[in-house]
Simulated scan of single mutants.
Amino acid sequence: MSGVRHKPPVTLDRVTTSRGELVLRESDGRYEVISNGVFLMDTSDGRSERLLVDAAVSRCKATEPRLLIGGLGVGFSLVRAVEHAHLTAIEVVEIEPTVIGWHANHLPHLTGAALSDPRVRIIEADILAWLAAAGDQYDAICLDTDNGPNWLVFEANAELYANRGLDLVARRLRPGGVLAVWSASRDHVFEERLRDRFGDVEILETPTGTRTPDVVYVVRAADTAA
């Protein structure tokens, strides 16, 4: 009996950080990130991460929009953002310097061109703390932090998806600005929280084939400042 033989995963880097162990593995051209022994993300698909950016940017009313992405990950969202030529600024907040370094050392073939785009700025910071600091406003914000609101690897990220986090995001949105949130599955409690804060919620699903669909939530800030 014959079939395709897959090489076993190769560990490219294993780092102990302040938040635990991070591992980057590669197998047959697919890269995956393991955090504290739990699968976090890989490069096998990326459709829902690209949808996250497309949904936010396409709904922007600004002619020269500024975009903020919460989470660099394996770079799907960043690469898609760079393809939107009318974006004037693309800022990516990533908490892990190890992940940022991987894009220079192990993943430049995936994200090197995007990272060299003059509109792109990578900010090493915790997204919640960075949102809380005084700073620029954006026409679109995309959150792809951890695995979304209801499948967290790091419990500290729960506050980003709680009322305080949504209030901080709303403060950074320009009037009429768009927020898109990636989630590994639907979270009805989070959906109600979004409705309470922003009003109507658009729910976009991407089939995965092996588990529940990935979800992108899209909401819009009021057209006039509160």
Rank of each mutant, 00 (worst) to 15 (best):
A225K: 06
R186M: 02
L67V: 11
E64Y: 09
L12Y: 07
F154Y: 01
W130P: 04
E49Y: 01
A81S: 12
H106D: 11
E64N: 12
E192H: 06
Y217N: 11
G75S: 12
D187C: 12
I141D: 09
A125S: 12
R121S: 05
N150E: 01
R172I: 01
T208S: 15
T98V: 11
T208R: 15
P9F: 07
T98H: 03
D13T: 02
D196C: 00
M41A: 03
A132Q: 12
Q137T: 14
V57P: 15
D45K: 06
G75C: 15
I123H: 05
N36F: 00
A85V: 13
F39M: 09
T43A: 06
A162E: 15
V218H: 10
M1Y: 14
R119M: 10
R30D: 09
G29R: 09
D146M: 00
I90Y: 07
G101D: 09
A129I: 00
V93Q: 10
A104S: 14
A134V: 00
P8C: 08
G176K: 08
A114Q: 03
A134L: 01
G3K: 10
Y138N: 02
P97H: 03
T17K: 03
D167W: 02
V33I: 09
D126E: 06
G20Q: 00
F190A: 04
A89D: 08
L72T: 07
V4R: 14
N163H: 15
L131S: 01
R197Y: 12
A184Y: 04
L128Y: 05
R164C: 13
S27I: 01
A89E: 15
P207H: 05
T212S: 10
G176S: 13
N147V: 01
D42Y: 01
D45R: 08
F39V: 02
V169E: 11
E202V: 04
E26M: 11
A85I: 04
V169W: 13
P8D: 13
T145Q: 10
L51E: 10
G148K: 02
R66A: 14
S44M: 12
R50T: 10
L143M: 05
G165S: 14
P207I: 00
A89Q: 13
A113P: 09
A158K: 08
L87F: 08
L143Q: 06
A113K: 10
T63I: 11
A133C: 08
L160F: 04
V178I: 14
E91S: 05
G71S: 04
A180P: 11
D187H: 03
I141Q: 03
